[in-house]
Amino acid sequence: MSSRKGRKNAAQVVRAQIAREKRRTRTIWTSVAAVVVLVIAGLIGWAVYSSQKSETFTTPPGANPPGTAVVLGQGPVTVDLYEDYLCPVCKRFQETSGATLNQLISEDKIRVNFHPVAFLNRFSTTEYSTRSSAAAGCAAQGGKFKEFTDQLFAQQPAEGSAGLSDEELIGLGAGVGLNRDDFGSCVRDGKYKTWTEHVTEDASKSGVTGTPTIRVNGKDVEDRTPEGIRAAVEAAGK
């Protein structure tokens, strides 16, 4: 009688052990499946990004040798401006300090590398940052980069809006004397969008995390007032 009871107990122990074993196997396999799903998801992300990224880019005339900015002026001190045409602080910066920069350019004290980055695409519904920057490339091709840039800031759309349409951008270009047909087809084709991507990537690589970023001979300038910029240029020119 006691032996029968012992067998029953033993059977229970074995059953419990088998159940434990099954549970363990199940946990291992579901865990493996979850990890595999995550790894595959990551690889998909990498693949999608690689397919989106353009390998080559078209640089507009008037760009610096690495093709990361349009050069204005030919002075000895280099001023790098990283600006997004949708960035309100950039517009204000242009309003307060743009004239000073123009003056320093005409005095042959500085050369400005203007980097029209597309950081703020998510703040418009139509990737306005990329479209306006690429359009500025078209303006550089027509020799009116500076004029067109000034117009883009003057007519800056609000963040979160659709921005200016391609047709409106073409209208602005024609307004500063660009050939409507050539400039228009350049804007519509998005000829310099790959360049914008290159400019933006280079800015990020150079540690630019906000717009506007102003660098004089490679050093960040915190004081963006006309006086601050003059002081930085003079210090760099010595």
């Binding site: 595959i40 998801a41 990551g42 992300g45 990498w46 990004y49």
Partner: peptide, 13 residues
Amino acid sequence: TVIGAALPFVELA
């Protein structure tokens, strides 16, 4: 850039 591209997909998964 690789981490940045993979991360959103891993987060969704």
